[in-house]
Amino acid sequence: MSSESKRIDDGLEAAPVFEAAGPEVRLLGSECPRCGAVAFPRREVCVRCAGPHRPRELSGAGRLHSWTRLANPPHGFDGELRYGCVDLVEGPRVLAPVADAEPAIGVAVQAVPGAGRHGADGFRFEVRDA
């Protein structure tokens, strides 16, 4: 990704929320050393035990909890948008586009580079055979 292209997290988060890792995307979250809760995006205070969090890179691997097709997507998206709810293997839930049509609920998915609003650099999930 070019350093000049717009990212989905520009101006919205204190730190980047994702980074490319070859053909995949790592999600930049955090974890609580005290209770083990994992968060995405990164946070300072644990919402489960109120302890301090430390940064943790998340694999981007997860399971598809549910999906939909937005026939009428928001401003800045063209055509139909496939959209999903993913539970990452480390725990956090992420709402993001999905590459595949008619994916099975519960299928393994991986975060990969994808376009956000107006084509901004972001991520989406892709079904993985596993």
């Binding site: 993001a96 956000g116 609003r117």
Partner: peptide, 12 residues
């Protein structure tokens, strides 16, 4: 906002 940049809407 962040979710919205990835296409979130209440109907979604």
């Amino acid at each position: 906002e962040l979710e919205g940049e990835l296409g979130f809407t209440p109907p979604a």
